[in-house]
Design a protein around this nucleic acid. Sequence first.
DNA 1: ACGTTTTGCGGAAACGCTTCCAAGCTTAAA
DNA 2: TTTAAGCTTGGAAGCGTTTCCGCAAAACGT
Lengths: 352, 352
Amino acid sequence: MAKKITIYDIAREAGVGIGTVSRVLNNNPSVTPETRTRVTEVAKRLSYQPHTYAQRLARQQSETISAVIPFFTSYFFMEVLRGVQEKVSEYGYDLVLYGVEHADEVESYVAKALRRGKVDGILFFSMKMPDRVLADLKESNLPVGLVDAVSPSFDSISVANSEGAYTATTHLLELGHRKVGMVNAQSMSTPALERLQGYRRALEEQGIPYSDSIVRCGKNTRHDGFNRDSGYEAMLDFIAMGPDMPNAFFISSDIQAFGAIAALNEKGLRVPEDVAMVGFDDIELARLMRLTTMRQPMFQMGVLAIERLVARMSHPEMEILHTTFSPTLIVRESCGALMTSEGTPSAKSRLR
Amino acid sequence: MAKKITIYDIAREAGVGIGTVSRVLNNNPSVTPETRTRVTEVAKRLSYQPHTYAQRLARQQSETISAVIPFFTSYFFMEVLRGVQEKVSEYGYDLVLYGVEHADEVESYVAKALRRGKVDGILFFSMKMPDRVLADLKESNLPVGLVDAVSPSFDSISVANSEGAYTATTHLLELGHRKVGMVNAQSMSTPALERLQGYRRALEEQGIPYSDSIVRCGKNTRHDGFNRDSGYEAMLDFIAMGPDMPNAFFISSDIQAFGAIAALNEKGLRVPEDVAMVGFDDIELARLMRLTTMRQPMFQMGVLAIERLVARMSHPEMEILHTTFSPTLIVRESCGALMTSEGTPSAKSRLR
DNA sequence: ACGTTTTGCGGAAACGCTTCCAAGCTTAAA
DNA sequence: TTTAAGCTTGGAAGCGTTTCCGCAAAACGT
């Protein structure tokens, strides 16, 4: 390792004081152009690199934002994270990533993050946090943003889950389906709960009684049930109902919808001919699979989350802002809306 | 913000010196049990949190590992990153993430990362770096690991691309296909190039002349062409060949294969009945899509990358290690191997 | 009883920066 | 010419730790 160069080396070499060196390096205007160039040149010649942590200690700020994500890797988070990452680097901050699996990990993480000065701001993704943690967070005055979660005390970016589910279900209803089932995720999850509500509301609005018997959730709990296998299991369960099985489904995530399609195909049933469905998320592969779904502006949510957080970092007293995106219905073929009059999918469309 | 508590506050409150406080906090054994408990109690009472950056400055190390990733978000990287993240937090390091789009960004990033003490180690993903950058990196003595890339001067974790392509192509050949085309990614990309070589070798080994005319790459260059649209475009191009079109394809990534399938379906062609194909990666959805593919142990690659990096951080003089994983052939239905004797896919299988 | 070692501890120094203050020099105003 | 007001500048102080050095007291050996 080449010997470490500090501002003292530069000062000596350039025949100035360390204060001047620091001023030059930080573009402080009160330095004559001559001194400035001299110092700059020496710095370049010695290929000086400031010590990040010394700066952070002296400046009392970290230039770091952290993101706390449950179930690291799921298409939804990845997409949001892309927006986050882009914006973070645009602002010149560092992005440190924490993946947590259980609620207790959040707690221990928060404790660490609260180490004075460690981060300038934190983004929590889809986390349901214990009240005590929320209180600690609030008391610490650390800028915090919530993504896909809501709490009165912090800024949040979320999606109108209930509304989206309502739209999806209504779409199916308007297509003439009377028996619309739902494949849901684990009911402990807030988005899952909200989507269930929207589904229910749509049904009731059309005078169709809600029934627990046609709402299922697979047993696989990974990612709170927002996974392929949970959808697969749930659909297998439905198929076992025989003729009583619903012929249309609102499915609480695209990835579960893919699992459901797999289950249907295995049993010789086809989408949308035999079963119509609408998903939720609009992940990249939904387009490929021709899945009708509710689009969430994931990338944009990530971008906005950082913009908001940065704004709060500079204006801590800013009023708390909650932004809810309304998912939009993307009609593809899985809902059957694009079927030709003969009852077969249009030329472009064949879902398996 | 509650007033900041420092070791001085603890020292005063506990009636000891700061040295002792520090020793207690760092589990240095030369402190009597009584003093230790007294200090510990005071620390807890004041809910002391050490200042991370002061520690890093004094200790001269960052407890941070960074990952530099091109094209943030692609299934491959995400999966590897999951392994990385898991291991990093197990070791108690911070993970800071950099997404870069162009080679020049890498350069400026490396410059920043080399700021003394900023990170304890860096992982580069699938990056082809200018020699000068490699030299700088080497000279800096900073522990570096390469994932999905190789260079003589650094540890690396990669996949036997050529071998994998060879296996995939051979599989198709053994199934009786004589005209096997290839959908490739951008040829600037090393993995793409290596996969092409493997494909070619397989052909030649079976006495089939290689022909440029049945190797295509879509124009979409996002992610170096490892994306859905590039596969879609390439396949459309093939279809335009009419009867001369190959009836089997090795496709350089699963995601491209999905695009290719979409193109085929649009034109009324079916997989595997009309066209057989083998992909590469085995991303989660490959299973769902019944795509025969070459599996890369992505998660495990991430884990190993960190283990290796941490090992190098403690033993800088350790001999440089290159690990190459051999992808394994996962036979599903897209290759046609599972067709029943009647020439139709088996019960479970229907790829569109 | 008296050296000699060991143990526990206090606090200065160091880590490498930013920032503030005082001082030297100019330049402008009176 | 004198005084006031700007500029530049050097360097001390401060950020919150860790660590090293030295000292006193305790433990040990004889």
